[in-house]
Design a protein around this nucleic acid. Sequence first.
RNA 1: GGCGGCGUAGCCAAGUGGAUAAGGCGGAGGUCUGCAAAACCUCUAUUCGGCGGUUCGAAUCCGCCCGUCGCCUCCA
Length: 455
Amino acid sequence: MKIHNTLSGKKEEFVPGGDEVKMYVCGVTPYSSCHIGHAMSYIIFDVVRRYLEFRGYKVKYVQNFTDVDDKIIARANNLGRPTSEVSQELIEEYFEDMDRLNIRRADVYPKATEEIPDIIRVVQGLIDKGHAYEVNGDVYFRVRSGDNYGKLSHRNLDDLRSGARVEVEEAKDDPMDFALWKAAKAGEPSWESPWGYGRPGWHIECSVMSLKYLGNSLDIHGGGQDLIFPHHENEIAQSEAFTDVVPFVKYWMHNGLLQLEQDKMSKSVGNLVTVREMLKKSSADAFRLFAMNSHYRNPLNYSDEGLSAMERAVERLRRALQIEDEEGNGETLDAETYRQRFIEAMDDDFNTPQALAVLFDLARRINGAKEQGLLVGQAQEMLRELAGVLGLQLEGEVKEFPADPFVNLLVEVRSELRTAKQWQLADMVRDRLGDLGVTLEDTPKGTKWQYKGGK
RNA sequence: GGCGGCGUAGCCAAGUGGAUAAGGCGGAGGUCUGCAAAACCUCUAUUCGGCGGUUCGAAUCCGCCCGUCGCCUCCA
């Protein structure tokens, strides 16, 4: 299979370094609720992981929480509460949101605040090797200590410097040098270190946690395109400087950003839709379909209309799974070619739009075969399996609602009306139930009903 | 200013050198149905932002232009 590597800018044949695929995805900084841009990114990497496993790889998946940072501190101060409490609450919310989106949990979720001794050890190591230096309790990484800085984002230090809007701090050797460790200011959480009390800088925690939980060379490191620079560039610089192992990461994967009304959705800009808001209106399957319907490297524009179109599309797949085989039918529908096409699509840098096209083709084939009297149970199993690789659940109703017996009663009465050919009354019942969000379908086996959009 | 994307039907969106340009939503017609719904069948881009060029052949490669977005500052 092929994966597009940001480092080379090309699709490359995927060859993991060992038996186990080592995969690290940058997690969130928990200072506010997750928005649907996060959801999209984590859905994409969830699919990457599920697909790798489907193809027989064993995957170790690590995702961090950067639970100490300026914004968390600001937020906690606003609320008059400890930072640890605020971040912990948001982490719990994160898990709830991701669970609802059917995103499988990572194997390890390290937190920056729980890795301080290792962070200090790595920072000290970088100082010892001459890649970092301390100034008044701050420690900076020296970007010019290697000659590879900029290789991921494909820019060079001189270009950066000329156009940079970075405030020049006199203390730094080079304006692009970045903080590994920040000296404590009043009212901030801090930890004791060889350079006095302080806290880790933004990038170092990811390097330390990935090195610790996955080793010196990872197979896949993922995140949004907005992390390419400076975050991932800095991770490479400090990790490779510390371990002398190159490459730190074999395949860098970056997803395009979700946009809202033509602008990037961003916490700091405030133009965002939270996962919770979105899930009030849509099912997890519809959102997953929405996210996977465009290629992961392209930006995607969010719209309510787009999402509700996906709701109807999900329904199409769901229905193909709901039909049942009858006794005494003819041959069995062979769906093997669809499986092959699915694999072909996904092997090509996770081409989910094409993989979805295969699922829709298969759904149509199942429906058509059913009308021809073929047995479709096996094909349905395959559809369910392949959809599952994309994290789609396609479940019909499971839960019982208090209104169910009343709906059943109305449907029963309507059936009597139909038997008596009281079409007007029967249609009125159907229309009024429709207004209330219940759709009826008359089939040869009786009337079926369901709540619109599932439950 | 520097770097990198993107521009394909009413909308969303694959395809990135060769034979009919995926799929979804929407729309039109038909089959089925008491009528619907669902499902199935048919149709819905002679053409891929514009102009040049390379090639036997380009949506696909190259150049220029137009539009648009991101990164260069915290960000999935």
